[in-house]
Amino acid sequence: MSRFTTMALAGACAVAALVAAAPAQAGYYILRWDNTGVCQVWSEAFTFRPIQWPSRYQVISRSVPTFNDAVTLQVKLRRQGRCTL
């Protein structure tokens, strides 16, 4: 490989590592679908909302900072019987 290609590849890898290591700014919350009772983790980073057809949803949690916290909260709500899945 030429030096230019090697340097470009190294630079791209460095940028990708920095982007992956940067903390996410958006939070996560839990949605509960009315017809099934299924709870779903939803990210505030999405620029759209879920389609409310054929069922509607409710936001049943406050925003949490990480996906892991949201999944932990979802499991807790399932154990309490507030979610079916």
Rank of each mutant, 00 (worst) to 15 (best):
5 T>V: 01
5 T>A: 04
6 T>S: 05
8 A>H: 00
8 A>E: 00
8 A>I: 08
8 A>R: 06
9 L>Q: 00
11 G>P: 02
11 G>I: 06
12 A>W: 08
12 A>V: 09
14 A>V: 09
16 A>V: 01
16 A>Y: 12
18 L>C: 13
20 A>V: 07
22 A>P: 05
23 P>T: 10
23 P>Q: 11
25 Q>T: 14
25 Q>A: 15
29 Y>C: 11
29 Y>E: 12
30 I>V: 12
31 L>W: 00
32 R>C: 03
33 W>C: 01
33 W>F: 09
34 D>M: 08
36 T>H: 03
37 G>K: 03
37 G>M: 11
42 W>F: 14
42 W>Y: 15
43 S>Y: 10
43 S>I: 05
45 A>Y: 08
45 A>L: 07
46 F>N: 13
48 F>E: 08
49 R>H: 10
49 R>M: 01
49 R>P: 01
51 I>C: 01
51 I>H: 10
52 Q>S: 14
52 Q>C: 03
54 P>F: 04
55 S>P: 09
56 R>E: 09
58 Q>R: 11
60 I>C: 00
61 S>H: 06
62 R>H: 03
63 S>R: 15
63 S>D: 06
63 S>F: 02
65 P>S: 14
66 T>Q: 11
66 T>G: 13
69 D>M: 10
71 V>M: 15
71 V>C: 11
71 V>G: 05
71 V>R: 13
72 T>Y: 09
73 L>Y: 09
74 Q>D: 07
74 Q>V: 05
75 V>M: 10
76 K>R: 14
81 G>N: 09
81 G>V: 08
83 C>S: 07
85 L>H: 15
85 L>Q: 11
